[in-house]
């Protein structure tokens, strides 16, 4: 029976039937093999390619370490109308009210984070920005001319304060 079953099975694929002889794979098992072949066939990756991969990996790791290790802020600088209104430490939880041309902006400091709770600006961008935690982060309420910037131990330069 088994031998008969074997004889009934379809003949192997005619390699000339489809121009790309190895693609797409036909049976389920061959599909897996083909995918593995595509991704890990050593002939596709030459020595220089491995070097490039390694270089790219190192690049990604270095970029991540450099850009994501922003030191936690310890001070919030609140500005109103371009002048420094107050500098407050993040260690103490508090609410601060700042008067701008449109009304009062309320700034909250809580658990070493800061945010703008309410603001009279029409689009509420600074309120929707949410909590600021890392040094260099900044929330601007332009219509009301109020901003909160977090600063850390060392001053970072960016396009705004350079």
């Amino acid at each position: 029976m088994t031998s008969a079953g074997m004889a009934d099975s379809p003949p192997p694929d005619d390699e000339t039937r489809f121009p790309l002889s190895n693609f797409p794979p036909q049976a389920g098992e061959r599909a897996n093999e083909s995918l593995r072949d595509t991704l890990f066939n050593s002939s596709h990756l030459k020595a220089g390619d491995w070097l490039t991969l390694l270089l790219g990996g190192v690049c990604v790791v270095l970029l991540t370490l450099k850009l994501w290790s922003g030191d936690l802020a310890d001070k919030a600088v609140i500005r109103s109308g371009g002048k420094i209104f107050r500098e407050v430490p993040l260690s103490r939880d508090q609410h601060i009210e700042v008067l701008g041309p449109l009304g009062t902006s309320v700034i909250a400091i809580q658990q070493r984070k800061a945010r703008i709770v309410s603001d009279p600006s029409p689009r509420q961008y600074c309120v929707r920005q949410g909590w600021l935690q890392q040094s260099g982060e900044i929330a601007l309420c332009l219509p009301n001319q109020v901003s909160v910037e977090l600063t850390g131990s060392q001053k970072k330069y960016d396009s705004l304060n350079y």
Binding site: H44, K46, T52, C59
Partner: peptide, 16 residues
């Protein structure tokens, strides 16, 4: 040099 660098290298450099 094509002996050591294939399309994978090209692709990675281009992607970056």
């Amino acid at each position: 040099p094509a002996r050591w660098f294939g399309p994978v290298s090209h692709s990675i450099y281009a992607a970056f």
